[in-house]
Every structure is written in C-alpha cells, then in structure tokens.
Design a protein around this nucleic acid. Structure first.
Length: 458
RNA sequence: GCCCUCAUCGUCUAUCGGUUAGGACAGGAGAUUCUCAAUCUUCAAAGCGGGGUUCGAUUCCCCGUGGGGGCGCCA
C-alpha cells in the first residue's frame, strides 16, 4: 500500500484558532500513526485578507503544539512551493486542461467549471434570482467517518475570479492532486463542498482521495460553531495564559475522538499509537475550558521542576503588570517560591497573584480571612508565642519548623492548626497558600518575624 | 427556501441487540492534611418524541423534532 499523505491547509487571514489546531492535530496524528507524510500548505489566494503576521502565527502555533510538518514552508519538499501564492503557473496549467476538455468557460470575466448534463433555469429562493441548474447525477462521498454520503452538485461554479485569481475549490483540488494527497481530513463544514471537489478531481482525470470529515467544535456557550472571534477560541490565548501545549494537545485529541476505553490523560506517543478513524465521533463537540484546565493541572503537577520554573519565569516576564518588578531579581529565590506553589495552582497564570507577597510588602490583605482568623480563641497571644519561638528556630527545613510550631502549640494545649491560620494571615495577608512551614522557610526568619510583629502591632 | 449532517448525564464520552447504561470534567456531601490545591470515599445527573423490525432495542429502519454545516468572483 502506498504511503499516506495528508495536509493541513490553513489560510493566513486571521488568528489561529482552536478548530484549526484540532484539524491540524488530527491530520498530524494520522500521518504519524500510519508512518505517512504531514504536509503544510498555505492557502493564501485571497490577497486582500492575507497577512504575514497571521502566517507567522500559524507556524509558531503549530510548533508550540509540537505539530511538526514533513513538507511545507520552512521545511521544503519535492512538490513545493507550499504557498499557493507561488503556484500560479500550475493553476493556469490545470485550467488549460479543463478548457481543452471543454469543462471550463468564461462568463462575466470569471471562469466557470462546467458540470455535465442538461441545463434549465430555476428561481433560487435563497439568492432571490434565477439560476441555471444542471441535471446531474449525485456524487458519492465515501467518508471514513460518515460512511457513504450522496450529494448533488447541480450548478456550475467559479474557479477563477475576474481578477485572474483562482478560488479555493480549484486550488485546493489542484494542489491535492499535485501534492499526491491521499487522505483529506478536514472539518465537517467542508462536507457540502466535497461534491464540488470530487467533480473537479474527475474532470481532471485524477483519483479522488479518501475523505474524513471530522466533527466541528462548538463555542463554549451559545449557538454555533466556534469562530475566531469567540471567547477562548485562539491558540495564542492559551499559550499566553501559560497553558501547557501537551495538555492542550491531549484535550483537543479527545474532542471528537477517544481510544475506546476510559483513558484520558495520555502522552502524545500513546495517542499516535491509538488514533484512527473508527475512533472518531460523528457529532460536534462543545469546547469545555474547565476540563482543559483540569487536564492542564494534571500535567502541571508532574512537570519537572526546571521546566515549571522556566515556564513561570516566562510568564512573569510576559506579564510585568501582574507581578512586582523585583520578582525575577533573585533567580534562586524565585525558583523556591515557584516550586512551593507548583502543587497548589491549576495554571501558570495563577502564579503572579498567588505568590505576590513573596516579592513585596505591598500585597493585599484579605479582610474576611482576618476576621475569620481572629474569631476563635486568642490568636494574638498565639502569634506572640510563635514569634518568640521563631526567633531561635531553625528555618532551614520544613520538618524543623513543624517541630517548633508543634512544640509551641503543645505547650498551650493546642494543635498545629490553631496556629496555622493566624500565622498564615500575619505573614501573607491571605487565608490560602502553600504549606505554612514551606512558606516560613522560603520567606525567611527576618521577613516572617517582621510581618508577625507588624500584624500584632496593627 | 433547498441540500448535507448529527442526536446517551449540564459538558466530553463508553456501549458495536440482552449492562444495576460505565468513566471524566463541572456540582453536592464526607474523609484526610497545616489553609488552599491534590488525593480518597460518596451523592445527584442521560438514552429527544412517535412508529416499526426483533423474543428483546440506547443500539437497526422510517417519520417528526432539535442541533450543526453548506448554498460567495471567502477559505
């Protein structure tokens, strides 16, 4: 059997969004699963809407997600160039073929593809005008996900605009032929276009590729499919918020596909091994950011320390307005703070707010938490006892600090928990945070004592 | 309006005619810890409606209904 060749063919006319990423992912997964070739082709025939910035974003986003392409821009390949704007001669050549066989004709300065069959006029309700219909036989789309789909293509359609540029349907098919694409994996929104494409393949005497029309991703709330303007639709947004690409890939792979059992968290190698079309659903899926966040947390928890710290550092650098300027001043200290917080946060983006008090005295104080902490017993007295003991305590290890605090508590006939609340509040201004002993150790004796005393004085 | 397509908990999904309809996220309760998070236990939560086929339908067929997509000299 010949090698599988699939392609992802985005157009650089807008930000790279989640739906595109998932289509790219499924193509890539299938290529990797079958040992085939993943081609990246840029469909930039709409000169008015293209932009280099968007093109850049496609490359960056794919690379960030780990979806490497075997052939395409910046990778090369035997059937390039891979940008349609550079393939004009080829489209002319194929157009000539259609003209020679009488399957293309000019009208109003544009070129139309001619369907075979008798013509008759009919009034089109949708377009409110009379159109020419063709008595044609339905095309059969043999879809790997949807099975046999029949659709009648009964109207000639434009393949070259009057400005001389070819349109999507034509270049898409010509390139799939010229690039030897064997499997077309794309969104279900193209299912209705498939009949046009198959007519073109046939007219050009080329074999029709296998199709796989994958379900669409619906917006998080409200009706309709997810589009570039929807909240949470952009890959770039998740990247900027510090989501892990492996978590996003894992989550996306499960939107419309499953391995047939309860497995959810899977390394990409495992997804590659298991991915195939019998496992792909036919129904559209709604994007659930909560579940993505959970998946992200699972990956975050097991992330190696170095990578976690590096990602945190990048995030702080990218969001200077969210953290004190001195946060990155001391790398060793920054590392300690981040590692203390790693098991506690759901996302990298929570870190600046979560760790603020480690880097500045200018941190918010949670009034409700203060009220709660001061409500039982005599917390100020407890803090004074603690303050006393911490003057001589060993701050080098969490266990030593724990012993110290427990000793203080035992003397008063109380438990660790009776001291934990007030102490945390005194040194961090909040009721939530990393384990108290770690908090003390990283903050250091001076800061801890200073804050407790300031709190007592207040 | 026409064409294509889909239909299981709020969400993502398992089930390839016979199951107490399973799992995950989110939600409720509890355990645990030093707060929070994690973890563990637990509760609640679904086969769109109507006809068939069958000994038996969530599963197969048909019709409705509902959702999604398409009907551009956009891709």
């Amino acid at each position: 059997m010949s090698q599988v060749r699939v392609r992802f063919a985005p157009s650089p006319t807008g930000f790279f969004h989640i739906g595109s990423a998932r289509t790219a992912l499924f193509n890539w997964l299938y290529a990797r699963h079958t040992g085939g070739v993943f081609v990246l082709r840029i469909e930039d025939t709409d000169q008015a809407r293209n932009s280099d910035e968007y093109l850049r974003l496609i490359y960056d986003s794919l690379r960030w997600l780990g979806l490497d392409w075997d052939e395409g821009p910046e990778a090369g390949g035997a059937v390039g160039p891979y940008r349609q704007s550079e393939r004009a001669a080829l489209y002319r050549e194929y157009l000539q073929k259609l003209k020679d066989s009488g399957r293309a004709y000019e009208k109003d300065g544009a070129v139309y593809f001619r369907l075979l069959g008798d013509r008759h006029e009919v009034f089109d309700e949708h377009r409110k005008k009379t159109v020419v219909k063709v008595r044609n036989t339905p095309v059969v789309i043999d879809d790997m996900i949807r099975g046999r789909v029949e659709r009648l293509e009964d109207e000639d359609f434009v393949i070259f605009r009057s400005d001389g540029n070819p349109v999507f349907h034509f270049v898409n098919v010509v390139d799939d032929i010229a690039m030897g694409i064997t499997h077309v994996i794309r969104g279900e929104d193209h299912l209705s276009n498939a009949s046009k494409h198959i007519e073109l393949f046939r007219a050009l005497g080329a074999p029709v590729p296998r199709y796989a029309h994958i379900p669409l991703i619906l917006k998080q709330s409200g009706p309709g499919k997810m589009s570039k303007r929807d909240k949470g639709a952009l890959v770039e947004e998740y990247r900027a918020r510090g989501f892990l690409p492996e978590a996003l890939v894992n989550f996306l792979s499960l939107l419309g596909w499953n391995p047939g059992d309860d497995r959810e968290k899977m390394a990409v190698a495992e997804v590659i091994r298991l991915f195939d079309f019998p496992g792909v659903n036919q129904s559209n899926a709604r994007f659930d950011e909560k579940k993505l966040a959970h998946m992200n947390m699972l990956y975050l928890l097991e992330l190696p320390a170095d990578r976690f710290v590096a990602l945190a550092g990048e995030h702080f650098a990218r969001r200077p307005e969210e953290a004190p300027a001195q946060a990155l001043a001391d790398p060793a200290y920054f590392r300690e703070v981040m590692l203390l917080s790693q098991p506690k946060v759901k996302g990298i983006d929570e870190l600046p707010a979560y760790t603020r008090y480690f880097f500045t005295e200018d941190y918010p104080v949670d009034a409700k938490a203060v009220e709660k902490a001061l409500s039982r017993g005599d917390p100020k007295a407890r803090l004074r006892e603690l303050d006393e003991a911490l003057r001589t305590a060993d701050f080098s290890s969490d266990t030593k600090l724990e012993e110290t605090i427990k000793a203080v508590a035992a003397k008063a006939g109380l438990g660790f928990g009776d001291y934990q609340g007030p102490a945390r509040l005194a040194v961090s201004g909040t009721g939530v945070g990393p384990n108290l002993t770690g908090l003390f150790r990283v903050l250091g004796r001076d800061r801890v004592l200073r804050r407790i005393e300031r709190f007592l004085g207040a």
